[in-house]
Design a protein around this nucleic acid. Structure first.
Lengths: 128, 128
DNA sequence: CGAATAATTGACTTTTACGTAAACGCCGTG
DNA sequence: CACGGCGTTTACGTAAAAGTCAATTATTCG
């Protein structure tokens, strides 16, 4: 486990640009350290970037991703806030469950589409 | 099963605007019939809209959704095209499987976050 | 030391996915 | 018949999420 990553190491690892990482910093999603002006990314920043990329692939917006990331952080000290957080966690879970249904349905339809193609190929006398 | 739906019926059902439906038509995702200039949406158009909304929730772009919709259509007649289609189906399946992994991981982390919150609440002597 | 390499900031641009507004057509109803 | 409601087209606007470019500053390596 390395101490620090440079910005370009992370861009290569995740296939994104430096501009994108700076953008995420501007948006308050990550907070890399600085040596002078140069950013130093800790392993924990790297984990955050991984979570951001996951969120992006799932079609969450930056602000939704921000919300999700908040949930992973140390839970707050106040009871009201804790209960709020539990509510929001449940909401996000709802989103994700919807996405999962969407996903399974889409996969099923792709299976069907594939079968149609294979049938059609068989009709044409092509052995797959 | 109705013959036709008006544009506003579909906007209400799916919670989207007429602008959005016209946009999807411009983008070639749907092809409602016309009576004069007025659009008539068939049940099949409605199914397409449902698929579009699913795609959107999963974070697919319009052009990705277009590709997916192509796959649901009648398979083409030519062998080369059929094989291409099978390849693309496999690709999309890959995308979806990645999304599923992302989804499960995110759900797991939300579970963890929830547990932390509950623990913290317990420490504070709150009975949930 | 000096050139090359890597990073930074800031401003401007682009793409996607619609929103919004203007101006008009069509149709049923009082 | 005119008016309210729905629908249409055309055109311009906008927010999010970066991309691109320019000017500047470290850092490093020979």
């Amino acid at each position: 486990m390395r101490d620090y990553y440079t910005i370009t190491e992370l861009t290569r690892e995740f296939g994104i640009s430096t501009r994108t990482l700076r953008f995420y910093e501007d948006e308050g999603l990550i907070h890399p350290l600085r040596r002078g002006r140069t950013r130093l990314f800790r392993p924990s920043d790297r984990v955050l970037v991984r979570q951001i990329m996951r969120g992006k692939r799932l079609g969450f917006s930056i602000s939704e991703i921000r919300q999700i990331i908040q949930m992973y952080k140390e839970p707050p000290g106040e009871v009201g806030q804790l209960k709020m957080m539990l509510t929001r966690i449940e909401e996000k879970r709802g989103d994700l469950r919807q996405k999962r249904r969407d996903l399974e349905e889409t996969l099923a339809e792709l299976d069907q589409a594939e079968e149609s193609c294979l049938e059609r190929l068989a009709e044409l006398g092509v052995t797959t």
